[in-house]
Write a protein that binds this DNA or RNA. Sequence first.
DNA 1: ACCATGCCTTGATGTAGATCAACTAGATGA
DNA 2: TCATCTAGTTGATCTACATCAAGGCATGGT
Lengths: 243, 243
Amino acid sequence: MNVILKSHIKCNQCPIRHRAICSRCDEDEMAMLESMKSYRTYASGDVILWRGEPLEFVASVVSGVATLTKTMEDGRTQMVGLMLPSAFIGRPGRKVIDFDVTATDDVTLCCFDRVKFEKLIDDTPHVAQRLMELALDELDAARDWMVLLGRKTAREKIATFIELLSRHSSMNNDDHTKNIDLHMTRDQISDYLGLTLETVSRQFTALKKDGIIDFSDRRHFVVKDLAALHDETGDDADGGIVA
Amino acid sequence: MNVILKSHIKCNQCPIRHRAICSRCDEDEMAMLESMKSYRTYASGDVILWRGEPLEFVASVVSGVATLTKTMEDGRTQMVGLMLPSAFIGRPGRKVIDFDVTATDDVTLCCFDRVKFEKLIDDTPHVAQRLMELALDELDAARDWMVLLGRKTAREKIATFIELLSRHSSMNNDDHTKNIDLHMTRDQISDYLGLTLETVSRQFTALKKDGIIDFSDRRHFVVKDLAALHDETGDDADGGIVA
DNA sequence: ACCATGCCTTGATGTAGATCAACTAGATGA
DNA sequence: TCATCTAGTTGATCTACATCAAGGCATGGT
């Protein structure tokens, strides 16, 4: 269910104004972006972009969650990125991507024509700089995820994932005790963490039994003991994953 | 054994001239870089940069192999990057790095003062563009590695690693049948692949028994059947890892 | 009200790779 | 020449997680 809309939301009311590709832009640059942008929305489960397909547009995630997934020839899959609001999809000079992009939620994207956007970059150093920052942030996140995939136990993986959602959730809303949306099925989570869905389910149950989290329903949980959760991640006090 | 040398090699004779950070530069830009650069050399095993240490310089790998390694608080380690010749260490705007950089070989770096280099980037779009490309290449490599770490079997991991070395080796020298240098100990390889050193050893032995590779000594091997090797990687015919 | 259907949980069993341990082959050096 | 050390191999055993299998519980359509 892919819907394309001309821009309604004004940039200065945009929820990702200060974190997205446009965060460093001045008034003139914002006007330029505003005139170029359009919104697309996708329903949960829609494929936003197929691997290998030529890219028509690049986009920022405004709301919802999208995933980047790689598939091996025999069907094994591994998620290689989680695109939360303000993440940027598409890169200068890359006409195709090597993974599928899927909406796990209802997703709204702020889109720019790829070719026009690439021209814009050359004249807009603030955008080019921010694009570099976002790419480096993704590289950092990918490297932290390599540690998770290569060395962490199932319990540590789940704890890390929950902490990640918890941290991102409190970025928008300071209340740590509120219900957090999982956004994904057990199957999708297992793809992200390099596990099976059964193991994900068992580890959720275990963390609940240990009083670290609590589920209000299958898709929403509360962190009851943030410190204990962190102890289970295997990360040290300060460093570790920054998403 | 860290030695700093003023530049001897002329850029136009440099082995990584056409792949490194300078690959898009014109004559004037090259002259600028030439005047700024200096070489540093490290012996096998030396730590080039410690995690968290402020970066004095950024650098291209000219020869040898360096690794990026993350360590968990209880000592588990995971390699998150393999820096082959032409790879770039350090990023604009990042004063520290979150992993150790180690020489696995004797390594020569072409270094630039970090602060001066960051100023240079603003006036030298060819360098900024190339830096972006290299960062995106690393991101692609990191994502392929996530699939390897999360979903591949031990045999597939080893086959992928050997194919990676083989491909990189033939980039410089077309002869597929020549001896390829492993550059690393079994222990370091296990760190890269998310395995133990025993498993690495067993898989090497198994691939040798199956006639796919052959060892001339413990650190040098020949690929006897490139197609069979590829079949063992789990990657499809065209796509897969590009390093 | 009923039956699909999709998502999740829980249990029983299997296995790839980790762990523990012993041994071999070069390399270094007195 | 013999002792020591490091890197690698190989074997025996263990275990975390995968795999296989059986229900449970919502939601939606007819």
